[in-house]
C-alpha cells in the first residue's frame, strides 16, 4: 500500500486512474489507500460547474482549464454523465470538448458515470476529488451531470459553485423556485449572444436581491455574469470572480481549510455512513437472494411490503430488541 500512496503523491497518472476506477467499482481494499491519502488532502481548490443539459458546461470547463494552465496552475477535471437506468451503460462525452488538454501533463481529466446516484454527481466523486487533491492538482473542477432543479450535491464538494444558464429557459417564476438556484456562488448566463440574455441576467439579479436573509451585510453576494464560452468571452471575468469568492471564503473561515470545517466534515461523514449502510445491508440482501424471496412472497400474497421490509432490515441491524420494545 505504501508504494501506491507514494505513486499517487508523486502524481503517477496510471495509478491515479486505476484508483479512481477501484473507487467507482467499490473495491473494498481501496478504503485503506484513501485512509492513507486523507492527510494529504485539503490543498486543492474545488470548483463545481452545474446547469441543465446543453448549457455549455463542458465547453466552459475546457476554457477554464486553458486559462488556469496559462497561469501555471495544474488542474484535475471530473466530468459526470448519466448512466442508463435500463442497461446500466453510459456514454461519457464530456471529454470531446476538452481533448485539446489530453496531452498536457498538468491536466488530468476523468469521466464518471452516475451509476444510479441522484444529485448530479456520483457516489465516488468525493473520494475521486481526494485522490486528485493528493496527487497535487491546484484546482479541481467538477462538472455535474446535466441537472434540472434539485441536484445540489456539488455544493457539498466544491468551494465555489457556478450555475450556468442560457437565455430563454423559462419565465421568472422558475427563478424564484427553491433548489439549485439557491446554491450558486456565481451565476453565468452562457450563450449571451442569444436573444433574451439581458432579460435572463435581470431575472437572476432580481431573484438574488430578494434573498435578503441569505445575502445580508458582509455576506457573499453572487454575481451574475454574461458569457460566450465557446468564443472565450467572459471566462477571464469568471475566474476573477472565483478568486474573489475564494478570498471571501478564506476570510470568513479564518484560515480553516474548507475540508476541515465542521459543516463539511458532517456532510461528508453522513454521506459515507449512509453509503456504507447501503453496501453492508442492502447489497448483501440482494446478493443473498433474501430480497428476491421477499418480492416473491409479496406477489404471492403471503405478506405485505411493510412487514417484508421489517423482516429484511431489522435482523440485519440488530434492532430486534429495540423494535420489540416499541411494539
Amino acid at each position: 500500500m505504501q508504494s501506491e500512496v507514494k505513486k499517487v503523491l508523486s502524481g503517477d497518472v496510471r495509478t491515479v486512474a486505476r484508483l479512481i476506477r477501484d473507487i467507482d467499482d467499490k473495491v473494498p481494499e481501496v478504503r485503506e489507500v484513501l485512509k492513507a491519502l486523507y492527510p494529504y488532502t485539503g490543498k486543492a481548490y474545488v470548483i463545481g460547474v452545474t446547469g441543465a443539459p446543453g448549457v455549455g458546461k463542458s465547453t466552459l470547463v475546457d476554457q477554464m482549464v486553458a486559462h488556469l494552465r496559462k497561469e501555471g496552475k495544474t488542474v484535475g477535471v471530473l466530468a459526470v454523465d448519466p448512466t442508463s437506468p435500463f442497461s446500466g451503460g453510459a456514454i461519457l462525452g464530456d471529454r470531446i470538448r476538452m481533448q485539446r488538454h489530453s496531452l498536457d501533463d498538468g491536466v488530468f481529466i476523468r469521466s464518471l458515470a452516475t451509476r444510479g446516484h441522484f444529485g448530479g454527481l456520483t457516489q465516488s466523486t468525493r473520494s475521486a476529488i481526494d485522490v486528485l487533491d493528493a496527487m497535487g492538482k491546484d484546482y479541481i473542477i467538477v462538472e455535474t451531470v446535466g441537472v434540472g432543479q434539485d441536484e445540489v450535491d456539488v455544493v457539498r464538494s466544491a468551494q465555489t459553485t457556478i450555475i450556468l444558464v442560457i437565455p430563454g429557459m423559462g419565465d421568472d417564476i422558475q427563478a424564484i423556485k427553491a433548489g439549485i438556484l439557491e446554491v450558486g456562488d456565481i451565476f453565468v448566463v452562457n450563450k449571451a449572444d442569444r436573444e433574451g440574455s439581458d432579460k435572463t441576467v435581470h431575472e437572476l439579479k432580481l431573484m438574488l436581491d430578494m434573498s435578503q436573509e441569505k445575502y445580508e451585510e458582509g455576506r457573499w453576494k453572487p454575481p451574475v455574469l454574461k458569457m460566450e464560452a465557446v468564443f472565450d468571452r467572459g471566462v477571464k471575468e469568471l475566474l476573477e470572480e472565483i478568486e474573489k469568492h475564494r478570498m471571501y471564503l478564506a476570510e470568513k473561515s479564518g484560515g480553516t481549510s474548507f475540508r476541515k470545517t465542521r459543516e463539511r466534515i458532517r456532510e461528508e461523514l453522513s454521506e459515507m455512513v449512509k453509503n456504507r449502510i447501503i453496501e453492508e445491508v442492502f447489497e448483501k440482501l440482494i446478493q443473498s437472494g433474501e430480497f428476491e424471496k421477499a418480492v416473491n412472497s409479496i406477489r404471492a400474497g403471503e405478506t405485505d411490503p411493510y412487514t417484508a421490509c421489517e423482516d429484511l432490515v431489522i435482523p440485519k441491524l440488530n434492532l430486534a430488541e429495540e423494535h420489540g420494545r416499541k411494539r
Binding site: 451503460g89 453510459a90 470531446i96 496531452l103 458515470a113
Partner: peptide, 25 residues
Amino acid sequence: RDAGFEVVYTGLHQTPEEIVQAAIQ
C-alpha cells in the same frame, strides 16, 4: 451503452497520442 458498458467517446480528429493518454486517464 445498451450492452451496459461505460463508453468514453473522444470525438473527431484525435491523434494516437491523445487517444492513448485519454485511455490511460
